[in-house]
């Protein structure tokens, strides 16, 4: 009763909590970050993201056809500012002309489209809320990228995995076989995207095992990619991004050669987020680096 009256009539004194500096504009030292990561009981107010990324051409390709985009900021919301993040990886098709053009176009068009949609809330005093839903914006951005690629780089193709994070909601738009994973506090790792690949389908139907898929001669065959075919049906989904968990987005240059368990181990054992991301790329290169490697790693603090 008393508790309720307090809630209703008097604001609870917030335990004074230093807000963490924005890591994008003022990167913290490894030591500082490590202390942040180990004190997981910490409560961050307002909630925020730690973001890092790493890329490598790999050890067997001359060209980098992967493209990567990260943006982390805050957005003016209906009540208070919410953390806003946009993270994209696109993997241009080898063997196709303009693979790197396709992946880069996907990235620019999608990020540009989404930021334009949220322009008012990001760069202005918002007057009108965005009418479309997060999933509608994501879907429209991908369709726009599809249109531009068909026009500007016909015959090329690219995967794209884009994550729009608003507060604790993670909205994913996905085509192809780049992947997004969530790693939870309890050390679980979950792929939250589904590869649009032939072997993945065969695996789902129980026709081949995961081990057979990993070495299948046609493991690189996709059935859906940006820039291919008239109709495109991107996967859209929104899942919670719980406080303390990690979001990993990567191209098949990483997941194709580093098993999930090892990915998990690298992330949970590294002293800092930056180090974790670099170690992921190193592990892929150590395993031969057959393809371009891209990784984005985000932690949600709150």
């Amino acid at each position: 009763m008393l508790k309720f009256i307090k809630k209703i009539f008097g604001r609870n004194q917030q335990t004074a909590q230093q807000a963490l500096d924005n890591v994008v504009t003022a990167p913290l030292s490894d030591a500082q970050l490590q202390s942040i990561r180990t004190i997981t009981v910490n409560h961050y107010e307002p909630p925020q993201f730690l973001v890092t990324s790493a890329q490598s051409v790999g050890r067997q390709r001359e060209l980098n056809e992967d493209s990567l985009f990260t943006l982390s900021t805050t957005i003016a919301g209906h009540s208070s500012n919410a953390p806003f993040g946009l993270f994209i990886i696109a993997d241009g098709m080898g063997g196709h002309q303009y693979g790197e053009i396709a992946s880069n176009t996907a990235l620019r068009v999608i990020s540009g489209y989404i930021l334009k949609k949220f322009h008012n809330s990001l760069f202005n005093i918002p007057s009108m809320p965005v009418e479309e839903s997060l999933q509608e914006v994501m879907s429209a951005a991908i369709m726009e990228a599809q249109r531009v690629i068909l026009n500007e780089a016909p015959g090329s193709g690219t995967t794209v995995t884009a994550a729009l994070v608003l507060g604790q909601q993670l909205t994913i738009g996905h085509v192809g076989d780049s992947r997004a994973y969530l790693l939870y506090n309890d050390q679980r790792i979950d792929a939250i995207t589904r590869d649009h690949s032939l072997v993945r389908r065969l695996e789902e139907l129980g026709q081949i095992t995961a081990a057979e898929a990993a070495v299948h001669p046609q493991r690189n065959v996709l059935y859906r990619a940006l820039g291919q075919g008239e109709t495109l049906d991107p996967d859209l989904s929104t899942v919670p991004f719980p406080v303390g968990s990690y979001l990993l987005i990567c191209s098949d240059g990483l997941w194709g050669v580093v098993p999930d368990d090892e990915i998990k181990k690298i992330i949970f054992e590294a002293p800092t987020l930056q180090r974790a991301c670099q170690n992921l790329v190193s592990a892929a290169n150590a395993a031969g680096g057959p393809d371009n490697i891209s990784a984005i790693l985000v932690q949600s603090l709150g």
Binding site: G77, E132, S133, G167
Partner: peptide, 27 residues
Amino acid sequence: YDNVVYFTSMDSHLYALDAKSGWLIWR
């Protein structure tokens, strides 16, 4: 449910909003 608020409207939509911020996730 899971930090998302769901409701329907006479505008024929079923809405899903982030419970914390009110952002429209999908309709």
